[in-house]
């Protein structure tokens, strides 16, 4: 039991931190532009594919460094020459633009890399068990994922709260005109944040690709969950996104690791249903089966009981 709990926690933390890398960029971009970037998870996918191609020629580590840069530069260019122009036409136009962009990236990925799953491998140097507990191995690559994610979180926190550029970004989120009047190039800051946000998504793709498989549907799989996270955390709240990411990661991990079914729960209350009942499929469900929908259930609960999210603020 303890071994299941420990490994479920570790896996939940890995997933949660990975989700945070995506949610952090999405939250920052939303805070600045006031619009959800529906193409955000597509940059995550693009990161994985770019890193896969680079790794074929130059190895995993070059891909780890270069792919997020490529995705970040692409994101910055899209902000500069696409989103900024569309911004003048309002939020609806921006949403439609990011929707279209998501489709464009997905189709492009399928066009250039094909529809099959890519054999994107983790590096050989990390192909060993970091530790063995209760007879179960925890791979070094998952440890590496945690290290990268924690490093990014600490770096992001340090930059945003302890550096001048971070202070400017924080101020530009809430008071862009005032920041411009103080001599700071706000559009350039926005472009930089968009680029950094997409680069983070790309980095998440690079490190997730070998574990969660690199295929054209990977953006769709994670994209919806990332939106759930930013809503649960509170739109625009980075700390909220962090808490929600870990919450979702752990929730799903515990659900998958558990061996509890509806039948077990009903038995606790002394209810027993026959197996030939027309609704038998319903109470035949197990928690691992409903794990993928748990984030959405949580989203509904949060929207009912705390519509602003965990750390979000109500708009005045």
């Amino acid at each position: 039991m303890l071994d299941v709990l420990i490994f479920a926690t570790l896996n939940g933390v890995v997933t949660g931190l990975l989700l945070f890398m995506l949610a952090a960029g999405l939250t920052l971009i939303f805070s600045m532009m006031g619009v959800l970037n529906f193409a955000h998870a597509s940059f995550y996918m693009l990161g994985a594919y770019c890193a896969y191609s680079i790794s074929l020629y130059f190895g995993f580590w070059v891909g780890l460094l270069v792919a997020p840069l490529i995705v970040g530069v692409l994101g910055a260019l899209i902000e500069r020459y696409g989103l900024r122009r569309v911004h003048q036409s309002g939020h609806v136009a921006e949403l439609v633009f990011t929707f279209g962009l998501a489709f464009l990236i997905e189709e492009s990925v399928q066009f250039f890399w094909g529809r099959d799953t890519k054999n994107y491998q983790s590096p050989d140097i990390l192909d060993f068990a970091l530790f063995t507990l209760f007879g179960q191995e925890f791979s070094a690559y998952r440890g590496f994922m945690i290290a990268i994610s924690v490093g990014i979180f600490i770096g992001l926190y340090f930059v945003l709260t302890r550096t001048r550029i971070g202070i400017i970004i924080q101020a530009a989120i809430t008071h862009p005109k005032t920041v411009a009047n103080l001599g700071h190039n706000v559009p350039l800051i926005f472009m930089g944040v968009f680029g950094a946000g997409t680069a983070l998504a790309g980095l998440a793709g690079v490190i997730a690709g070998p574990v969660l498989t690199t295929f054209p549907g990977m953006a769709v799989v994670l994209g919806s969950i990332v939106f759930v996270i930013v809503v649960i955390g509170g739109l625009g709240s980075l700390a909220g996104a962090f808490i929600a990411s870990l919450l979702i990661g752990l929730l799903q991990s515990y659900a998958i690791a558990s061996d509890v079914g509806m039948q077990d729960l009903l038995n606790v209350f002394g209810i027993d249903f026959p197996y030939d009942h027309p609704l038998a499929d319903l109470w035949g469900l197990t928690l691992p089966q409903i794990a993928p929908i748990l984030p959405f259930l949580l989203l509904i609960l949060v929207l009912i009981f705390r519509p602003t999210g965990l750390l979000g603020k109500r708009e005045e």
Partner: peptide
């Protein structure tokens, strides 16, 4: 900038 400290507000200038 209400959430930034006095010093951070000045540095921003």
């Amino acid at each position: 900038f209400p959430t930034l400290t006095v010093r951070q507000n000045l540095v921003l200038g």
